[in-house]
Write a protein that binds this DNA or RNA. Sequence first.
RNA 1: GGACGCGUAGCUCAGUUGGUUAGAGCGUCACAUUGACAUUGUGAAGGUCAGAGGUUCAACUCCUCUCGCGUCCACCA
Length: 989
Amino acid sequence: MTYMKELPKTYNPKLVEDKIYQLWENSDYFNPDDLPAVARRAKAGLPEKRIKTFSISLPPPNVTGKLHIGHSAMLAYQDIMIRFHRMQGDKTLWLPGMDHAAIATQNAVERELKKEGKTRHDLGREKFLAKVNDFVAKSKDTIRKQLKAMGASLDWSREKFTLGEDLSRSVRVAFKRMYDDRLIYRGDRVVNWCPHCQSTLADDEVEYQEEKGKLYYIKYGPVTIATTRPETKLGDTGLAVHPDDKRYQKLIGKKLDVDLAGHKIKVKVFGDRAVNMEFGTGAIGVTPAHSLQDYQWAQKHDLEIIKVIDEQGKMTKAAGKYAGLDVLTARKRFSDDLEKAGQIEKIEDYTNNLSLCYRCNTPIEPLPSKQWFVDVNKKTSHGKSLKQLASEAVRSDQIKIIPERFTKTYFQWMDNLRDWCISRQIWYGHQIPVWYCGNEQKKMGFHEKVVPQLYQGKTKTYRLRDHGFSVGDRVAFENSQSEKIFGYGVIKNIEETTVGQIDLQDKAHRSTYDTVEELIAAFKKHHPDRKITPKTKAIIYTYKFSLDKPNKNGCGEIIVSVNKPNKCPNCKNSTLSQDPDTLDTWFSSSLWTFSTLGWPKKTDDLKNYHPTSVMETGYDILFFWIARMIIMSTYLLGEKPFDYVYLHGLVRTKEGKKMSKSDPETSVDPLDMIERFGADALRLSMIIGTSAGNDVRIYKEKIEGYRNFVNKLWNISRFILSAVKNPAYPKTAPRVKTLSDQWILEELEKTIEIVTKKIAGFEFSQAGEQLRYFTWDQLADWYLEIAKIEKNKDDILLWVLKRILILWHPFVPFVTEEIWQTAFAEENKLLMVEPWPEVQKDQTKAGQDFKKIQNVIIALRNFRAEYNIPPATIISISAKKNPLIEKEKKIIAKLARVKFSAVKKGIRLTIGQLDFTIPLGNLIDIEKERKRTGLELQTKKRYYESLNKKLTNRYFLQKAPREIVDREKTKKKELEEIIKKLTKKLKYL
RNA sequence: GGACGCGUAGCUCAGUUGGUUAGAGCGUCACAUUGACAUUGUGAAGGUCAGAGGUUCAACUCCUCUCGCGUCCACCA
């Protein structure tokens, strides 16, 4: 008895999972280079090309903390595919990694800083980034643990990070290539600006929310216009009307002088078909600087751009007397002034869509700004635009999207794609690989009131914000109000201190103060929203001021380079400054499938695993990510990034609500669920009962159900291993002895065929359903019961067990591997790399006969239930002579609890072509029996109680049948009806 | 405004080329129970497949419309 350990009565995932993952990890089989099947083929002299590969790049989780339940779904799907292909002998790679998620991560760290009352500017770029890196390191660690807890068979030796050294290089190479191909340009554009994040946002990072507002009708020269944002009208330079609008036709082409409560503007009137004549008055004041639509008009009709709102969300000097006010105050003040001037015709209530930042929910301010863009319409060196390349990859069926309906959504999005703004004004991320000859980018602003003091020789300035200068930097001094450069300075000294420690009487500063309060008040003017105390960090910059443009300031050449350039190739100047902006995080993620494989180097991995086989992710990032990966791969590599896109649905709560991390009520923590029910159960609950692209609801009870199944599988194995004499691993297909043997093997083959087909065809739920049906309904409920009657089935039991463990492994890797290790330990092999079974076609179909027997048993059980015949009572039946019945009498007798004897008179029951007679006398006997024994009622409650007391020697009396079949009243007719019903039901089984 | 999806048993959902009798899990009800498993077993009840019309020998499945719910995209001053 050396062959096996005893399996515990119930499966306890907690004791198993970590241990099993260790076992896998130590085997190195996660790494496709080390797979035995691959090695075997290579050894057999199969050329490299003939070895099939299968690869998936893990959609990199954001390093913003920990994984949520949505990640579990993604991991379950991918791990199934990966394990399936690995067992099929493919060279299978699942490459892990994480995304630096620039804005999200920076925000997370800033939120933490805020708890300490600090901002990132208090730390400065370098220190802040160090803090971010600490945070990221912790996140990565947590996430790795979570990935492992789910059982994800990832090749850790290839783990990547979007902000890692290697991938950063890929990003710079991609950027340079696109720049050289003139696909990346720097331009002034109206962009979505978040005044809180102090950064631009891509179009799809903007969210909309309905908001109740007002629609102001303003007298505007000779016409009246309607607007929801009067304050922007201060920056109007155009008036748009519909060309067919008779009311305004004669104005088109004219230039109007408009007086808005004393603020004078000049506007050019133009006609455009995009104007809706029905809305408002049909005339629109056009503000090119603060509306995307208006900006497009400005390009088309050649309008001047006047910026009246700045990056802080405050009115600029161009807004005249409203300068310095925040937008809402300015709106109020200006509309009051218009009212006084009699220029408000009316104000209506109006619901409009407010644009919000998707990270912080701050209202977006469209602003003109210099940004980097990817041109999606320009022809590339491939002769087609990026848009075309990416569309064609899907249109030509090279890339298949599952479910197919999303293909349409994809095209729609592609067709409407506009140039992609890729620069972000945040610190965490890939700094744009662009250097300017000279110090153009470094600026320091001074309030216009203090500018004259600089000319008088002041050499110090106090700042709360770290400008990121180094000693020796040449800095352009800018008038903050006019935004004009008025001179230059060299940074002579940088002193970090606190507000309270600043020398109030320092004559080198432009102003002196008597008290700290005065100084704080001065700071407050520039930072009205900040809490400033004497302990607040401050920086004293000492500079040397001059009016001259420094002659070493360079030629202004723009240098785009993969590596940091030493000097300007144009003028040989070595004072170069890098663009301080960083790249949109999606820029690096869009390279994910190939940057992780070594691109731009032509590595073996790239050759072997790209295009990847499947991109599996939630449909919510089809646009954000999938589309961009297709763009980048088709352009940079000239090949698609993946063959298939499989989109799973979103994970929702029991009530169908979106899970939100912030709301613990609705969110289900995957680690908590794994702890309680095991990773296998969690995986099943994500996969079974859903289909591609459809949302899935996850809740405790559901996972619990699958935990029960996992335990069933465990107990099936336990039973088989204890029932057989020698649980040796069967090498060849076992010999069939009985009808049931034939049947179970046929069903098994059918199951292998279906499961294989369904997994390969991305129908995971159906594969799982079929497996569950076979395992529970066929194997456990029928075959194992028969095995208790017919003995000597060791070979078949082990053979079937072995097969179902293999088939189940991709779905529930932990429990199957644990059973495998216990049962077949002498093999000293991992189930994880056990070859997937081939379907063996067997056309005998003898299993059909077994189904007839099943029907007989079911019909008899039905009959018993209809008559409330307790299981303890054996009823007599007689059957017409039939070889099938004769052969399987024993099974029928045991499972239906009948005995075969001659019955002359009784009810005839026809099941299929088999006839039975059941004597009415049986019913009478039952009644008698019941009366004779008295039958104390045995309730469920008492049964449980007795179990607890472990009164194992007691026999329990039967509970009396609730309803007595009354001989008098039970007419033959009624009985026949029941039998008819049963017969009908069973005819087709 | 545009596009897409959903509506099937009390609940959650499967149902891929239209084909005999529409399935599962959970829940409910009845019965059972010490030996693989109460995280169990044996049975039962429960559906005019949202509604109407059409195509067809045949429609949950294809087409049209209506109603209800949801998602995405665009955004109009």
